[in-house]
Each structure stands twice: as C-alpha cells, then as structure tokens.
Nucleic acid binder design. Structure first.
Length: 223
DNA sequence: GGCCAGGACACCA
DNA sequence: TGGTGTCATGGC
C-alpha cells in the first residue's frame, strides 16, 4: 500500500464517518482499563463494565489495587472473560506499583519504544493493547492494528490476511506521517467502518455503506 | 441456538 | 514457530 492509497482511504473514511474523538474515556487510566477489557469483546459490554467500576469508585490505580481480584471480577463481569481480565488488570497494577511507584504519569512519560516494551512485559498486555495505551493514553504516534484493520484491508485486496501484527503495523507506519492525531483518527475510523458496515464480513463489500472505498480499492490494489 | 465482538496466553508437538 | 484450546458476556 502506497502513502497515496492509505491517504485516499483515510479521506473516504473521514468523509463518511467524521471525526471520532477517540479514545472514549475521561482519564489515561480509564483508557488502559478499557484497552484490557475490550480484548476480543464488544465495546458495548466494556462500557457497562466501566460504568460499574465508576459506580463502585474503583476507577483509579489506588482503589483498584486495594480491591480484591474476586470483587474486581464481579464488577467487570459484563465485559466477559472477567476472571482473566481481573487478573490482567491486577498484573498491570502490580507492574505500575513495583516499577513506577504507582505513578501512571511517570510510566506514560517514557519514550515510545521503552514504553511499548514495558507494557508488553506485563502478562495480559499484548501488541494491540500496548499500542492502544501508547497512542490513546500516552498520546504518542504508533499505529494500532486490530481485527478490523486486518479484515477490511484484506477484503479490499491490500493485505493477504496472513501478515503478522508487526508487518501490518509497519505497512501503515512507513506510508503515513508519524502524527498522533492522524493515527488516532485512522484507527478509530477503521473501527467505525468495521462496526457500521458489512465490509468486515463480506468478501466484497458492495452492499456496505461505503461503496466508494471498494471502488477505490478495485482501481488501486495490485492485481 | 449459533455466531461474533476494538486479544492474549498457556500448552503442546 | 505454529497450531489449538481457553477464557465468557451480551446483542443480533
């Protein structure tokens, strides 16, 4: 994919869906919690879980550290995989306390490479979750790849569908200027498109709400 | 009733 | 290193 292709697709998505203003959260910590809770889970369910955490006043590193894993699991139950995710949140909190004295700002101030590596060292934080935190909590320019990215760009013919996370990320980051606001909106628009249309599920999205995206791909993708 | 959703990891060969 | 099983709720 050339810079021209990626820019053109971005413009089509922007025109269709408008600015997304991501991440839907009030604080960096809420971004991190949301990023872990949304693993393989519909965002709607995550919203319910986060509302529960707010209601119980557990949405801060200190409060969430103090509460037991079993209570935490009960509160985040609507997000699914609640035992696993409670454990993962606890892993992150332990990491934050041991390495950064519980200070989130110190962690998020680190430069992009070390920050990403540090996050990946936490059990339960993989590439997508780490990159979501880097981009949306630390506001540093990294491209987040998710299932929608892989599916949509595969359907359009720009990806084979078997590329690794890192390979797909490299494609986007080589072709696009490294701007936080651009990466923020691009990923959010991909998710908006994936959620809102049949593009993600149909081999050719001729019935989706953004036929021009397909038409563009028909003309541009390598044969 | 089955499929899927803004993944990650343990386990095994 | 790659493939497979596991984790689980809620909406359609």
């Amino acid at each position: 994919m050339s810079p021209k292709d990626l820019t053109a697709i971005y413009r089509l998505l922007w025109k269709q869906y408008g600015p997304q203003h991501w991440w839907p959260a009030e604080t960096p910590f809420e971004v991190i919690v949301g990023a872990i809770l949304t693993q393989n889970t519909a965002w709607k369910n995550v919203e319910t879980a986060i509302q529960g955490l707010k209601k119980k006043r557990l949405l801060s590193p200190r409060k969430m550290t103090e509460v037991s894993s079993s209570v935490l699991a009960r509160v985040i139950r609507p997000a699914g995989y609640f035992n696993v995710k409670a454990r993962r949140l606890k892993h992150f909190l332990l990491f934050l306390r041991q390495r950064y004295k519980g200070d989130l700002k110190t962690l998020l101030k680190r430069s992009i490479g070390p920050l990403r590596e540090a996050l990946l060292s936490v059990n339960g934080i993989g590439p997508e979750t780490a990159d979501s935190i880097v981009l949306y909590a630390a506001h540093k320019p990294i491209f987040v790849v998710d299932a929608y990215t892989r599916r949509i760009f595969s359907r359009l013919g720009f990806l084979g569908g078997e590329e690794s996370y890192g390979e797909i990320q490299a494609v986007f980051m080589k072709a696009l200027p490294k701007q936080t606001t651009l990466f923020n909106e691009y990923h959010a628009l991909i998710v908006a498109h994936g959620k809102n249309t049949c593009a993600a599920r149909h081999p050719r999205c001729s019935r989706c709400s953004l036929e021009r995206l397909c038409e563009y791909a028909e003309g541009r993708r390598p044969s």
